[in-house]
């Protein structure tokens, strides 16, 4: 392990740091609360000061107050120091118009093509668990490039999602475009074990970077489908002291980084 991390870090902190590093300065980013908001704010405070956050509640370019993280994207805390507030439908239409570079997503399940499920565990007609549903997830995944941040577990990385709430590359190849979704699609999947991208032709998920100290065998063992992992896959730099300090400042009560 490299030595520049000043303290052990949690899986959520690692997700936030890796996601932040995947963002670029100047981008317009559609973010949910939790890890996505932490990642986008961390990026603003490090390498991407000109990054703009959008919240589904109708917020353009806010600066969320450290220690007062919002409980969802739809409360007044989200609006702090924003440039503009819009109706919900209009902020979602920015996705359709093409103003949004990256959308941040999570999900209960993901498959090799980046299709996401946040609606049902089990048979949708008689679900074992009814989950909250899409929210804006389907719209974001349909209309923007997305970064998915989630824990890497076999029950989440599955051969076939129980339900496609938010479309990835559907069945691969050009199936997404043929379904009427010519733009956007999964860009990165960030987990506590690896950062993954997608093959440009087959649209299958492949490992690009291993998280610090993680082996390719560990990643495959925690994945329910065959992942392409090159023999010489590089390892990511661990979260730096600066990155962890910024996260601690943003979320001192560790609502989202525990």
């Amino acid at each position: 392990m490299p030595t520049d991390a000043t303290r052990p870090y949690t899986a959520s902190e690692l997700l936030a740091v890796s996601s932040a590093r995947a963002l670029k300065d100047g981008q317009i980013v559609f973010a949910g609360v939790g890890v996505p908001l932490l990642a986008a704010t961390l990026a603003q405070r490090t390498h991407a000061p000109g990054l703009t956050i959008l919240f589904e509640g109708g917020v353009i370019g806010p600066f969320v107050q450290p220690g007062a993280l919002p409980p969802s994207t739809n409360e007044q805390r989200c609006a702090r120091r924003a440039n503009m507030l819009t109706p919900i439908t209009d902020v979602l239409l920015l996705l359709q118009r093409g103003y949004v570079d990256v959308g941040f997503m999570g999900g209960a399940q993901i498959d090799r093509y980046g299709n996401l499920n946040s609606s049902f565990i089990g048979d949708p007609d008689a679900p074992k668990t009814r989950l909250p549903g899409t929210g804006g997830g389907n719209d974001i995944a349909s209309l923007a490039e997305i970064i998915v941040a989630m824990k890497h577990e076999k029950r989440r990385f599955v051969e076939k999602v129980d339900f496609v709430t938010s479309p990835g590359y559907l069945s691969g190849g050009d199936s997404r475009a043929r379904a009427g979704l010519p733009a956007g699609g999964p860009y990165k999947v960030v987990t506590d074990l690896a950062v993954m991208g997608f093959d440009p032709e087959t649209k299958r998920m492949r490992v690009e970077t291993l998280q610090p100290g993680v082996t390719p065998e560990q990643v495959q063992a925690n994945t329910g489908f065959d992942l392409a992992i090159a023999r010489e896959t590089p390892s990511a730099e661990p979260p730096s002291a600066d990155e962890l300090a910024i996260l601690a400042d943003l979320d001192p009560e560790r609502l989202y980084t525990a």
Binding site: L95, T134, G137, N138, D139, S142, V164, T165, P167, L170
Partner: peptide, 30 residues
């Protein structure tokens, strides 16, 4: 429904139009 679909359904109703076209929800289980 997707969040934008909910919004566009209300907006169509507000406009006195029978529907709105959109580019999300296609290809999904939703």
């Amino acid at each position: 429904w997707s969040h934008m679909a909910m919004g566009l359904r209300y907006r169509a109703g507000a406009m006195g139009a029978p529907f709105m076209p959109m580019r999300a929800m296609l290809g999904s289980g939703v």
